[in-house]
Design a protein around this nucleic acid. Structure first.
Length: 852
RNA sequence: GGGCGGUUAGCUCAGCUGGCUAGAGCGCCUCGCUUACACCGAGGAGGUCGUUGGUUCAAGUCCAUCACCGCCCACCA
């Protein structure tokens, strides 16, 4: 295969799909649970089936693919398991919006038709997501594709519920919950999104029995209809005499005990609080403490539930307006103040949350929480970056019981069955008959489970739990979980808890939290804002490898990253550079019969030893970056080696040798390419596989080749070649400053410069080496020598260099002259500075010599 | 209200345990189509590392403070 067969420019479109198809057809993604190799497993965080893949997925999936490919090459049996999540509440909202666009509601459609509509949607969107992962080159084991609504997965979910239930951890109880009036469902605290609202704080006078009154402050006057008490702080002298008395609720007439409670802030409002246990979490707790009555003043759709009052059935905001007006009429509205505060919204449909009392399914968390805390203390899960462990632990420590029930149409139905005689059966499969009365007439509980209940089982339910499958034995615990930080508490923590509970071990050893990609202007990327960027468009423009290289460079950034297309474009150029470097090496005569790289032993050329040494460092940097989850180090190391060392210096140095068919140069170049392509493969799988296939080699696929570990380190060669670079750069600088022609000129170097260095310099700087110059020439700073060009004049460069050296020397000397420095700094630092001072003096001396 | 992260060239970002003569990509300026690559090569301009203090022989790097920006957690109506 020669250069002539390679197009001049790299075209990602021409090769990517082909390689993916071949890898897949040859089963390279399929894991063998029976393999004797050490196992490595990642279960892909299942994307919600609510739409198409976006940048966040591209980033998340790429990071995992880098790890999966790397581990395959380092000899592990890798299972990288794909799947999707039904995302109950999110999907229901998507479908409802679709229906609304068609002028319909799910109620009109009916539950069965709604369900089949959902199934249809799952099929369509599931395929889109799958195909996008193929475009991204994600090496997922498609033979094990899972969906949280698959029958087997549903069985895992039911089993988990029943196990928890049998342990007595699942119970049903009325509590105050976050109620979404739009979804007509409770949601958990973590699903509430807080947003700043500009509201009004109303000060309302409540008369007191036996005379007097107390003024309270509220932003939600409509909830006063459900007030059952008034509370003040026990330490508040202003109200001490009121405690124990009874206030009378305006507009309603209900009698309200006045109680003392520490939770009341004396500073806020008037220091007196109206207590509405039915519609405020804090009031609920105060109510509990003081035995206050609970009044339910609201319907499930957010309208008022106050039979007998004129506000009954009104939407909350309308009721508020009417109530305020009525209070004003009665002279009970003391004042209104503008007030800015945070209001909870449903994170899926954005409706304002109405806290209310509702009977829900709860899961006790104490024991699981404690096990998780102990696992953390034992260092069972490593977080990257480490600081996120605290985020997780802080939340865990304050954990309360989890409201796992949802009143949705979509999701896993709670496996609780009620017979006609009112007996309850909890079982994985629908019961045949009631154990207590033999009834065969059952009705299933209408609640579904929180999506995160099923997601929490992902690392083992996907592997077949509760069956003791081969996969489960081989691949649990998994090794890695990669997620965005917003999902640490919702998902990661719960996987850890259920993993410990059901499998007796943490679900993974490492958690990597990636940065978030923002739009170029710093806003969040979102479809609705129009700030989203479709990864497929980027791939069409720049190729998958370019996108992935960019992902590697930003994924583990300490801060969120703004999208910058020019950086992706830069990596496309990098692909092209690799392409052309390979093309150059392959154009060398006789390469068709070349052996696999690394067979030639004689490395008498300085540049050969140098580049092989640099190659070893680069390989180490790439490995270390992946191992430590700092992928930016990997891509940066590979990039600078490939471009700034291999292409810029090595290939330039050996061009002539390659042209002459020098077998050693060919071999070294192949070794570099072979190694480079291998260690770049996890990040840039397509271009590396393509180029590697064109190299003389052993083996069929780069993808299943071994990870390179070159160990040729040669400090002497590095130092000598560094001198080559320094001299060449100085000669080039003089050439341009003088306006001399691009090639030609004579260079005289003194005997301190070895022959191999001088020869390389001459070639790379396009000058002729001479023993003596026929003109005075310009002295060099880095080494004793002079250069003369055919024409061109001026010594701007020399002056600048002199200035720089003088400044540098002054700075160094002042430090060296400081006795404290001499005394306290480590000797090697002092020595280093002394050497630099000496070098600067020498260079200045050379420059001080007269010239032409 | 707590906690965490960020603030480094015009833009997007690197700078690990203090020793930096502060880097990269893009953009900008000047040359150059030299048989790998103009998706290129060579040379160059550009930064008192958010503020104010402190620790240290030495601070972008450690400590404190303030100012913005962002995120997470939290039952102040």
């Amino acid at each position: 295969m020669t250069q002539n067969e390679m197009p001049k420019a790299f075209d990602p479109q021409a090769i990517e799909a082909g390689w993916y198809a071949r890898w897949e057809a040859d089963g390279l993604f399929i894991a063998d649970a029976k393999s004797p190799k050490e196992k490595y497993c990642i279960c892909l965080p299942p994307p919600n089936i609510t739409g198409e893949l976006h940048m966040g997925h591209a980033l998340n999936h790429t990071v995992q693919d880098i790890c999966a490919r790397y581990r395959r090459m380092t000899g592990r049996e890798v299972l990288f398991l794909p799947g999707t999540d039904h995302a109950a509440i999110a999907t229901q909202n998507v479908i409802e919006r679709q229906l609304a666009a068609e002028g319909m509601t799910k109620e009109q459609l009916g539950r069965d038709a709604f369900t089949s509509r959902v199934d249809e949607w799952y099929r369509d969107v599931g395929e889109t997501i799958v195909s996008q992962d193929r475009i991204l080159g994600i090496s997922l084991d498609w033979s094990r594709l899972r969906f949280t609504m698959d029958p087997a997965y549903v069985r895992s979910v039911m089993t988990a519920f029943v196990e928890f239930y049998d342990r007595g951890w699942i119970y049903r109880a009325p509590r105050i919950v976050n109620w979404c009036p739009h979804d007509r469902s409770a949601i958990s605290d973590l699903e509430v999104e807080w947003k700043e609202h500009q509201d009004t704080l109303y000060f309302i006078k409540y008369p007191i029995e036996g005379g007097g009154d107390v003024t309270i402050a509220t932003v939600r006057p409509e909830t006063m209809l459900a007030d059952t008490g008034v509370a003040v702080n026990p330490a508040d002298g202003r109200y001490r005499n009121l405690v124990g008395k009874t206030a009378v609720l305006p507009l309603v007439g209900r009698k309200l005990p006045i109680v003392a409670d520490d939770a009341v802030e004396t500073e806020f409002g008037t220091g007196a609080l109206k207590v509405t246990p039915g519609h405020d979490p804090m009031d609920y707790e105060i109510g509990q403490r003081h035995g206050l009555e609970i009044v339910n003043g609201m319907n499930l759709d957010g309208s008022m539930n106050v039979p007998g009052l004129p506000y009954d059935g009104l939407p909350a905001l309308e009721a508020r307006a009417r109530i305020v007006a009525d209070l004003k009429k009665e002279g009970l509205l003391v004042k209104e103040e503008p007030y800015t505060h945070e209001v909870g919204h449903c994170d899926r449909c954005k409706s304002v949350i109405e806290p209310l009392i509702s009977e829900q399914w709860w899961l006790r968390m104490e024991e699981m929480r404690d096990k998780a805390l102990r696992a953390s203390e034992a260092g069972k899960v490593r977080w990257h970056p480490e600081r996120y462990e605290n985020t997780y632990l802080d939340w865990l420590r304050g954990l309360r019981d989890w409201n796992i029930g949802r009143q949705l149409w979509l999701g896993h139905r709670v496996p609780v069955y009620y017979c006609a005689n009112g007996h309850t059966t909890v079982s994985v499969h629908p019961p045949e008959q009631c154990d207590e009365c033999g009834s065969t007439d059952f009705e299933q509980d209408s609640d579904v489970l929180d999506t995160w209940f099923s997601s929490a089982l992902w690392p083992f339910a996907t592997l077949g739990w509760p069956e003791d499958t081969e996969d489960l034995k081989a691949f649990y615990p998994n090794d890695l979980n990669v997620t965005a930080r917003e999902i640490i508490n919702l998902w990661v923590s719960r996987m850890i808890m259920t993993g410990l509970e059901f499998m007796g071990d943490v679900p993974f050893a490492d958690v990597a939290i990636t940065a978030q990609v923002q739009a170029a202007d710093g806003r969040r990327m979102s479809k609705s804002l129009g700030t989203g960027v479709d990864p497929r468009k980027l791939i069409t423009k720049y190729g998958t490898d370019a996108l992935r290289a960019w992902v590697a460079s930003v994924a583990m950034s300490s801060q969120d990253v703004r999208f910058d297309e020019s950086r992706i474009e830069g990596y496309r150029r990098f692909c092209n550079k690799l392409w052309n470097a390979t093309r150059l090496v392959l154009s060398s005569p006789g390469v068709d019969s070349a052996d696999s790289p690394g067979v030639v032993e004689r490395h008498e050329h300085l540049e050969d030893r140098w580049i092989l040494s640099r190659l070893s460092y680069a390989a180490d940097a790439v490995s270390a970056g992946i191992e430590r989850f700092t992928f930016q180090d990997s891509i940066n190391g590979a990039y600078s080696f490939a471009w700034n060392e291999f292409c810029d210096w090595y290939l330039e140095a050996v061009k002539d040798r390659l042209r002459e068919g020098d077998a050693v140069a060919q071999d070294v170049a192949f070794q570099c390419l072979d190694t480079l392509l291998r260690f770049l493969h996890p990040i840039m799988p397509f271009v590396t596989e393509e180029l590697w296939s064109r190299l003389p080699r052993r083996g069929d696929y780069l993808m299943r080749n071994s990870w390179p570990e070159p160990q040729f380190v040669d400090p002497g060669a590095e130092e000598e070649f560094q001198q080559v670079i320094a001299i060449v750069e100085e000669v080039r600088g003089h050439r341009q400053a003088a306006g001399a022609p691009a090639r030609g000129g004579k260079l005289q170097l003194d005997g301190s410069v070895t022959g191999s260095i001088a020869n390389l310099v001459a070639r790379l700087a396009n000058v002729e080496l001479v023993d003596a110059l026929d003109a005075p020439g310009t002295p060099l700073a880095v080494v004793a020598g002079r250069v003369v060009f055919p024409y061109g004049a001026g010594d701007a460069r020399r002056e600048k260099e002199r200035k720089r050296l003088e400044d540098d020397l002054a700075r160094i000397t002042s430090r060296l002259e400081n006795p404290d420095f001499q005394e306290k700094a480590p000797p090697e630092v002092v020595r280093n500075l002394e050497e630099r001072a000496a070098a600067a003096r020498e260079a200045l001396n050379r420059l001080a010599e007269p010239d032409s």
